[in-house]
Design a protein around this nucleic acid. Structure first.
Lengths: 335, 335
DNA sequence: TTGTAGGCGTTATCAC
DNA sequence: GTGATAACGCCTACAA
């Protein structure tokens, strides 16, 4: 059922029907207006968004690319994006890449096809030339067609980015732990080439070095960026016989994995070993002991990235720095 | 940049260009094909999905309606939907209603406008005539235009539904707790009119009654269906001076809220009071003590609902029953 | 205020 | 095999 049908049913021209239903309230007599609306209702008419998009040349879709929507980190960001997009009258097209870098490019191309108004890329980047370069290229092409883009994390995609102060947060955390009296550290460092993990590792180690504390390489355990990765890394660490006073996992999900592993091994947190994470995901409110971490305003990240994308221009790359804040909880009582 | 541009650039007709790029590989000489593809690449051409959708009369979009994407219950379901939709070559349009029932109707209408292929409604329903009726009507109208729909939860929307066995799970949980030796119960019952909450409450109480255990009304505390609701309800319960042996919160998120409240009040779980929830959200893996609950296969719910929607027909309502399973953990050690 | 007509980018049905 | 040409459903000058 098309606008044409409605017009005929109401006994008016298509133009009038169009104006009555969607357009300029201005210019249509109330009586006709009523008649058209009634006809539309009677016929269960709904404007065809595709047709509208075509003639208007743009859609009201905003694409959101995440690695895994079930991860509280991403779902919090998604909540922010959904919120901000809603305010702007846009619909969110969610794409979960399941950590497959090749899919990201495919998704960008799809969004380009759809003429999506903007794209928010929320995934943390790996430092792999190939994958990132492909995505960069795809995004550049998309922008070339008038699309707007914003990233979250590191400014490595050649687009406007909400930059999380990973280095500052990690350094501050290191200093705080030092202040609490810890002197023997270890780290669950995540993937070697993962940019976020890398930034947090380097800053943490750097700050400790500035304080005269050295962390030998064997105390920096690489591994997955997820729950299981954290668990495995902690097991590996403890298996070496090393017993640091405090362990820093480069994100909360890993820290929680480590916490579970410690529990299984009968290692008490924080009595036997202190533990800290990064992100302050909402899950933490339910965890005992409360996990010391660096609070990243996740929902806000989504909101800001959306706003950034919508206000972005075809040229130039803007960066928005987001401050983070150390939150000390029971998992690092000090000594 | 349109197909026309590409055709001109390649020196062929628009029809040929179309065939070369998208269509029937059959019918275009390899040489021309190459030329067209090269031109398309050079011009950064991307087919306009809106135009395609219009002429084809349908899209590859699947709508997903949830109350709050940041809630682990919904984000797990969303992961399942995303997965299944991906398999079927569809894109997921995520809509978060933020618990606003009026928005649901708006979203359905939007999806109808978009000519979305299907819609999955994941939100638990309130037993409010008005809200549900409006949504029912909107969905019926959508289906009338050829759209496919599946719901998750209770079959009250007049559409194919993945039905969670709330009653069976709650009853089984009651029996299990009884078997563990508990005789004094209380319940954090959620909203009075919330269907899911209602089913779980009734079944739990019914099963206990069958076992000869009575739960006085003052031990069934109504409240919000969320974290804060659980916390408040537990506080209210304890404030009355009642000290049940075990408390059943009608969902895990509420149970976690209650757990936090108990902790604040210095009430130990499970030593002073045992606690059980419902859903088995992923968050639970990180919580101590391990929470006894009824496991609902959340991701699977999303997958099945998606499949159900895609295979649904214009007429008739099919129901898919999903079994649930009681999982006993440390929060109910028995007595 | 209302109607007419052209065009948005594709695909598909025809002839050639 | 390839190329005109007619839809698809809607919006919007422009004309009346």
């Amino acid at each position: 059922v098309t606008l044409n049908d409605v017009a005929r049913e109401a006994g008016v021209s298509q133009a009038t029907a169009s104006r009555a239903i969607n357009g300029s309230t201005h210019g249509v007599r109330p009586e006709l207006r009523e008649r058209v609306l009634a006809a539309a209702l009677r016929l269960n008419y709904t404007p065809n968004a595709a047709a509208q998009a075509m003639v208007r040349g743009r859609t009201t879709t905003l694409g959101l690319i995440v690695h895994d929507i079930a991860d509280p980190y991403f779902s919090s960001i998604a909540a922010g994006v959904a919120q901000a997009a809603g305010m702007a009258g846009l619909q969110v097209m969610l794409a979960s890449t399941e950590h497959d870098p090749a899919r990201e490019v495919g998704i960008v191309e799809l969004l380009k096809r759809q003429r999506a108004r903007a794209i928010v890329v929320a995934g943390g980047r790996l430092d792999d030339r190939a994958g990132t370069a492909d995505l960069r290229r795809a995004l550049a092409l998309y922008r070339q067609t008038g699309g707007r883009v914003a990233g979250i994390g590191q400014p490595v995609l050649g687009v406007d980015t909400v930059v999380v102060d990973n280095a500052g947060g990690a350094a501050e955390l290191a200093r705080e732990l030092h202040r609490l009296g810890y002197r023997s550290f270890a780290m669950l460092g995540g993937p070697e080439r993962h940019l976020t993990a890398w930034e947090r590792r380097e800053a943490f180690l750097g700050a400790l070095a500035d304080l005269g504390v050295d962390v030998p390489d064997e105390r920096v355990i690489p591994g997955g960026f997820d729950h299981e990765g954290g668990a495995r890394s902690l097991r590996r660490l403890l298996a070496t016989g090393i017993r640091p006073e405090v362990v820093f996992a480069v994100n909360d999900v890993m820290a929680l994995g480590a916490l579970g592993a410690a529990r299984e091994l009968g290692v008490r947190v924080p009595d036997d070993i202190a533990l800290a994470g990064f992100d302050d995901i909402p899950t933490l409110r339910d965890v005992t002991p409360g996990l010391t971490t660096v609070c990243v305003p996740l929902v806000d990240l989504g909101v800001r990235a959306t706003e950034l994308a919508l206000s972005s221009t075809a040229t130039g790359v803007r960066l928005v720095d987001v401050p983070v804040e150390v939150v000390v909880r029971e998992s690092t009582p000090g000594r």
